[in-house]
Design a protein around this nucleic acid. Structure first.
Lengths: 143, 143
DNA sequence: GACCCCCTGTTGACATGTCAACACCACCGT
DNA sequence: ACGGTGGTGTTGACATGTCAACAGGGGGTC
């Protein structure tokens, strides 16, 4: 039947589990706040940094392409979630009241949703192990 | 600094690790075969099932939306990777020679790539644990 | 058979992401 | 001051995904 090797098999399983979990969390968050996944990511970034960040820094934290962020911020600016201002070389992104209200409401909802779809489905030991594993994957960046 | 709870923190870490790994594997596979991630998924599905599947079944296996698959298959049909034929209620998707050649070449490349970016970065024990964890996430489908 | 309902898939409009080309500014050496 | 170079963002064309509306077959029930 399956001709995939060990590594492929693990990858496909991981992929499917991640995407299933992701879909569930996105659905929750979209219902709770009307935010898309990307918008939420950006707002969480800003929230955790006090509300102001260089566009550059956001892209780095999220591991995103500059272009993608630029397009997204253009859309978010229109909805008045954030403002952009030139700073020397680059651009500074600032959380605006509407964005702050939304993200303040979303952070607790996100914790509830991630707990329900992820943390509560794992044994306490597994949660610890999973965290260790992903941290190792992220740190061994001999990319 | 960060005001996220435990569950959110774990989720964001997992997300970042997954997306980083995914990007690396996609880059490899795109270079090796010219296939996009979605096309590869569909071809792997067909490959593992002997070359013929109901459109319905593909969507179920991949956990995809009907619409997405329909659009993608339309594009893949044009490139002659697959053919579609009506069967009773639904549609049967068949692997065509060009598609078969491509996937036959890609399966070994995928194993190499997933080994390099995922399996080899984990301790043997961690690999086993990760597999167990994702299988649990997938099976406890009290969705 | 006529009707109804569910399952399957398609279509078109729109949202989002990607890619390559470009514009701009800061810094550096001369 | 001048020109070069690298880092930063934007833009437009295109690829891909999502959503809601629709089309049509199968299998019930009467």
């Amino acid at each position: 039947m399956s001709t995939g090797g060990q590594a492929t098999e693990l990858w496909l399983l991981w992929k499917r589990a991640y995407e299933t979990t992701r879909a569930a969390i996105i659905a929750d968050m979209s219902a709770a706040s009307g935010l898309s996944e990307s918008e939420l990511s950006v707002l969480v970034c800003l929230h955790e940094s006090g509300g102001v960040l260089r566009q550059n820094a956001i892209a780095a934290v999220l591991g995103w392409d500059r272009t993608r962020l630029s397009h997204l911020l253009t859309r978010m600016e229109k909805r008045d979630y954030v403002a952009r201002g030139k700073v020397g070389n680059g651009v500074e992104v600032t959380l605006r009241p509407a964005g702050r209200r939304t993200i303040d409401a979303s952070v607790p909802a996100l914790e509830v949703s991630t707990r329900r779809h992820l943390l509560d489905r794992l044994d306490p030991g597994d949660a610890t192990t999973l965290k260790a594993i992903v941290e190792r994957l992220l740190s061994e960046d001999s990319r």
